[in-house]
Every structure is written in C-alpha cells, then in structure tokens.
Amino acid sequence: MTELVNGKGLSLVPKTDVKQGLKDFKSDQEVRWCPGCGDYAILAAVQSFLPELGLKRENIVFVSGIGCSSRFPYYLNTYGFHSIHGRAPAIATGLAASRPDLSVWVITGDGDALSIGGNHLIHALRRNVNLNILLFNNRIYGLTKGQYSPTSEVGKITKSTPMGSLDKPFNPISLAIGAEASFVARTIDSDRKHLQSVLREATAHQGTSLVEIYQNCNIFNDNAFEQLKDPEIRDDITLRLEHGQPIVSSTKAAVRAANGSIEVVARDTVSADQILVHDAHNPDPSVAFALSRLDEPAFEHVPIGIFRQVSRPAYDVLMAEQLEEAVAQKGSADLSELLLGGDTWRIG
C-alpha cells in the first residue's frame, strides 16, 4: 500500500546545527505594507516558524510574483526572487526541479495566482513539484489600488466596477483540488497558531502544497473575513478540518446530504456517528471538493484546515530519477562520443 502522507518534503534540504531564532530570518529591509495590513501577521508567523525547521538558511528560497504580498521575500533573510506578475510558480518550478536541496516557497496573492498566473498555478499543482505556495487571499487588488479580484464576490463595487462586478469568483480550494493538487489547506492571517500548524504540514509534504491564507486588506477591502475573527460568531461558523476528527464547529456539523453531497446542520440535530469524519488522506478528491464548496456563497460555515493531503510522486524527484536511470542504462556522458554518434565518415 502506498503511504498516504509522505512527510519527505524537507528530506533533501540540509539541516543546521546552529540554533536559529526569529531574528535570523529578518532581513535588514524596512517593511513597507500599509499599517494594519494582514501581511504583517503572516510575515511574523513565517519568521517565527522557519527556525523550527532547522534548515540551513541559505537553502531556503522565497519566490514571489507581483502585488502587495509579493514584497514578502525582501523581508526574509533567505535567498529571494521577486519576479513578475503571475509567473512565480513557473520560476519556482525551474528552481525546485533543478535544485532538490532547496526549500522553495512561492508567495502570491489572489490576483497574481488566480488571474494573470492562473495557468501556472494549476500546472504547478498538477505537476507536483516540491513547492510551498502561500496564496494570500484578500479578495481585492491592493497594489493597483482597489479593483475587484478573481476572488471578489459578485456585485463588488470598486473603482473599475462602479455598478458591481459581474464575474463569478474562483474558490481557490476548489480550483486546487480540481487541478489534482496533493496538498490543499486554508488558514487565516490572524490565527498564528493555526497558520503555523498548517505550514508545518505543508513543509513536510513532498510535492506542491497550496495554502490559502485569508488576509485582511484594511485599505481596500477591510473586514472581508471579519466573521471568522469575531469572537461572538467565529467558533460557530468555523468548521475545523482535522484528519480523523469529526467536522464540526461549536454548533454545527457536516453530514452526508441526501443528494450525496455534504451539508451542514445544527450539531444537536444529529447523532455523533452521523457526523462526517475528516479524511484528508483519501485518494479520491470528491469529498474534499465537496467540503470546499461549503462556504459558498457567504461565510455561513467555513472549513478551515487541511482539505487534502495525499502522497503522490513529486515531479522533481521523478525528474532526478530519470537522469540517474539514463546514466545507469547508457553510462555517463561523453561529449566526443555524442558528436561521433550516428553515421560518420573520414576524409583525408
């Protein structure tokens, strides 16, 4: 039987004996997001999480695209590449595929990953290169000053949509599961403990991990995720996804619907054995996909956690194996032999 969770995501990245702390991962650059931006919380969470991995700092690379979130690499004292709009997954793929000894992270936003870079995102996910993709979803364009994004709700009034946006938003989790992603999770900027627990699993995962992080843009889309932060209702609407545990909030529970899908009902109306137990390791993605649809269209009940975590061969590992196999089959390379291959003839 194939292992369900491989845990080998960092197996090829060299470790350090030196004890690291948060300050080791802070660069000398002044952080320049708007005061109150959710990005600060995510940066702090990542900086304080990285020491836990015990990796050589020089073997960590953050690659980003364009947008507010994509300034992230400048603030980490690792290798970093702030690239161009939407292309970070492609650039990171080339890096990770050729350097299995690196821990490669992609920092992107809802516009960067799902609009201009949508194609690269879905192909990175299906290809399963060993990458950690952190998708900061604030449901708005921040850096270009407030146009609606591909995750904005229909009817969003913005500078470019004074009468409301017309296009249906992407659900990043549904999209990722549809693209055969092997690791898909959702967390939230304000919950550092949960965010770090998801990062822990994402980095351990060998292959592409997609982590959607609900992130508040207090300038252009303030309080977009307020329900999930409001102490009055957050425990009521947050469905915690933990492998092997029933999918419940304080008052609600996920159960099989009569139509075969999943529905959320009041917890006290069902018996314990009717409540759906989360199986993130299920090779069949259909239940994970059904879970991803639960928060549509509004925040009535929002699954938070790891939707899907299955073991599938990583592209970079397979690529390296083919190189080894080629040497095993044909011997190591010799340029003269290559040039002299085929039909040759001698003159003089």
Partner: peptide, 18 residues
C-alpha cells in the same frame, strides 16, 4: 512547460539556482 512564458520562467528560475 504549460506555455511559452512558463518555459522561459522555469529556465530563469533554474539559472538563479546555478
């Protein structure tokens, strides 16, 4: 790659890696 842009992007990412 999935497209021309990803082709050159991956090549550049690999170049960053040496």
């Amino acid at each position: 790659a999935e497209d021309e842009i990803a082709g050159v992007g991956a090549a550049l990412g690999a170049a960053f890696g040496g």
